[in-house]
């Protein structure tokens, strides 16, 4: 089980006690986010929809790989990997 770093976007920091980076352990991306949501209870409502699924329009990268091109939340994470959450540019 590897320890990874998650880069937290500015708008999520109120739910991570202001932290801009978090570390967590897990074998898959889903494990990592579950661990973080247990540690920061306010985070789950921001990352998951009402059905408990990860919000599909949030883009998550493991290193430089978009998880939609990998295995989604089942994407394995290696020790020391960096995970980035990006929001879509939208609206007008």
């Amino acid at each position: 089980m590897g320890e990874v770093t998650v880069i937290v976007p500015v708008l999520l920091r109120p739910y991570t006690d202001g932290a801009s980076q978090l570390t967590a352990e897990g074998e898959t991306l889903g494990d990592v986010f579950r661990t973080l949501c247990e540690r920061f209870p306010g985070l789950a409502a921001r990352l998951y929809n009402e059905n408990g699924d990860f919000r599909s329009f949030l883009q998550v990268f493991v290193e430089s790989d978009d998880i939609r091109t990998r295995l989604g939340m089942e994407t394995p994470v290696s020790d020391g990997a960096q995970i980035t959450i990006l929001q879509a540019l939208a609206g007008g």
């Binding site: 409502a45 009402e50 879509a88």
Partner: peptide
């Protein structure tokens, strides 16, 4: 208004509760 929507409203919306 459009720029405000893109930079402020939409990022918040994507992380908001219903």
């Amino acid at each position: 208004i459009t720029l405000y929507g893109t930079l402020v409203s939409w990022p918040k919306l994507q992380l908001a509760t219903a």
